[in-house]
């Protein structure tokens, strides 16, 4: 203790340093804890927002469907608009806005049943957006008149896109097995998929299960996703009457 008196300030400095370091470390750790808490809170908020937005979207889709039915009905009931209604119906058929039925095929695609062995890329054994796109493309090329995938109508504005482990079609997430329904000549559609060196053969190489079945009557639902155009508008002067 006598020696302390020889260097009181150096000894005090030890205390100051210890106190400073301790309080600084407490402050930093409190910040770390707060940051963790903020991340969790933000995540919970975003999840709630997503659920809310999805519920809202479903509500609006139902409303759109109801309004379309109503519109069709009111147009059809009036005789003077009969011709107009027919043209509207044709336009709606081509735009994919009406459910259709007729002969065709159903194509079912499911992920590979083969066990993935070590060293092989497991990505090769699951269905990707491009596989679906190739099947749809083949069906279109073979003259399919209407196509739907898991209840989603394929139109000119339809996207088929990988979003993580699922495929998004018309903004709706769907997962394998994919049930692709096409209306058209059943024989031609089936041949388009199963031809030698075709899409089915190359997918089966990876064990991806794809089956094509000819049907005498299949149903394709109407396009129910968003129709609003924000940028495009009719170029009327180019329309030939």
């Amino acid at each position: 203790m006598e020696r302390v008196r020889r260097m009181p300030w150096a000894t005090a400095l030890v205390g100051v340093a210890l106190g400073l370091m301790l309080s600084m470390q407490f402050k930093v750790q409190r910040q770390v804890a707060l940051a963790d808490l903020a991340t969790v809170q933000r995540m919970e908020k975003l999840v709630a927002q997503l659920a809310e937005a999805e519920a809202h979207r479903d509500e609006l889709a139902a409303e759109v469907e109801a309004l379309r039915q109503q519109q069709l009905l009111s147009v059809k009931t009036q005789n003077e608009y009969q011709a107009l209604a027919e043209r509207l119906e044709q336009a709606q058929i081509h735009a994919g806005l009406l459910p259709l039925m007729g002969p065709g095929v159903t194509v079912v695609m499911a992920d590979s049943s083969l066990p993935v062995t070590a060293g092989e890329n497991p990505n090769n054994f699951i269905i990707h957006d491009e596989d679906v796109l190739r099947v749809v493309n083949e069906l279109q090329a073979a003259g399919a008149e209407a196509i739907s995938i898991n209840g989603q109508r394929v139109t000119g504005r339809t996207e088929i896109r990988c979003t993580g482990p699922v495929v998004t079609i018309n903004g709706v997430r769907t997962a394998p097995p994919l049930n692709i329904v096409a209306i058209g000549n059943p024989d031609e559609l089936e041949r388009a998929i199963t031809m030698k060196g075709g899409i089915a053969e190359s997918l089966r190489f990876w064990g991806i299960q794809i089956t094509v079945k000819k049907e005498s009557l299949v149903r394709v639902p109407a396009y129910t996703a968003r129709l609003r155009l924000d940028y495009a508008q009719p170029a009327l002067e180019e329309v030939t009457p």
Binding site: A12, V14, G15, V16, G19, L20, M21, S23, M24, F26
Partner: peptide, 10 residues
Amino acid sequence: LGFVVGILLG
């Protein structure tokens, strides 16, 4: 005393 001063500073 130094310890208290250090904590206050921090």
